[in-house]
Design a protein around this nucleic acid. Structure first.
Lengths: 175, 175
DNA sequence: GCCTGATAGTTCACTAGCGAACTATTCTTT
DNA sequence: AAAGAATAGTTCGCTAGTGAACTATCAGGC
């Protein structure tokens, strides 16, 4: 597998060549977009690599973390797939996985029997507490060469970008 | 589907709660990682949405673009999956799709008959030239509120992060 | 109380991507 | 020149994720 840096160089060259035949290409913005996706995917792969030994994957883990970190340790599939940007279909599968692994329980809510309540079990909490700490050094290492200002700036720009994308995909501003 | 901004708020709250029970959580770095992936995925979804009417998906498109932007308009699956960080298996599928759509041709290379050469067809070039321009305004819009300095800084930080991840995943520095 | 419509989940059938096993070709060694 | 190792793709069987159809429950008018 080629090094990330070489991929980026290749990408830069490709974009440059495209912009020759199509002069109105917004080179910088396209580069940023591709870079962002690239780096994001790499981070995701890193995480999956760490999770694999536990036979759990990224979205299962994210979902578990959302339940774990909810104030009362439980949530319904609907809420979860809203925040995790997952389809309801997939959330059903994830819930199945987590329940089967004994990390959460599934019960239908008392007030509204259509809803389902996924609640974290003691084993689920233990699992999170064991899984998370070894992850921290790697996250820190990824940002090792970042100054405090770098991190603040990076976060600011990412949030700004998120806001822009929000406008882009929900152009329903004021009625 | 919930707004991006709300998801981020929810994510912030979740990380804050986790860091209460696990005080050694590197809150800022975790936040940056999650933000980055979030924004990257959203950009990806945006692209897929635009591509769907043409019955082509993100990786098919990226692959097509790599062939299009190669100096001689052709490449072998091996090169492509190196740079696209795709498995060879999937590249076979992608090649099948592109060939079936008449956008590229598949032929075995003369010098080394193990290799396969994927070459873009005139229809493939036309397709790219038609598909790409409507994409530009959206990319520009995503970075609309970014100053020139913002963009430069963002790019610098992303590349720095990429370099770090490279070290993280290939710790084979010097022998 | 009882249709109508809305909401929450699930099931089903399909697309996307991955790892392991396999095939065909080329390189190396002798 | 023949055997063995290496390389490039493909096929196969599996895991992830999606959209459409379906089920069960609730809410509102009458």
């Amino acid at each position: 597998m080629t090094r990330l840096i070489e991929c980026l160089a290749h990408m830069d060259a490709g974009i440059a060549r495209v912009s020759e035949t199509m002069p109105d290409t917004p080179v910088r913005e396209v580069t940023l977009t591709r870079l962002l996706r690239f780096v994001g995917d790499s981070l995701g792969d890193e995480l999956e690599r760490h999770l694999k030994p536990y036979n759990i994957n990224d979205s299962d883990f994210r979902t578990l973390m959302m339940i774990y970190s909810s104030p009362d340790g439980s949530a319904s599939p609907g809420e979860l797939c809203g925040f995790a940007q997952q389809g309801a279909t997939n959330m059903t599968r994830i819930a199945n996985v987590l329940v089967k692994a004994g990390l959460v329980t599934r019960a239908s809510a008392a007030e509204d029997r259509r809803r389902v309540l996924l609640s974290i079990t003691p084993a689920g909490r233990r699992f999170v507490k064991k899984l998370l700490p070894p992850l921290f050094p790697r996250v820190l290492e990824a940002f090792a060469s970042f100054s405090d200002t770098d991190k603040r700036t990076f976060e600011r720009l990412l949030r700004k970008l998120a806001a822009n994308i929000d406008h882009l995909t929900h152009p329903d501003d004021r009625p």
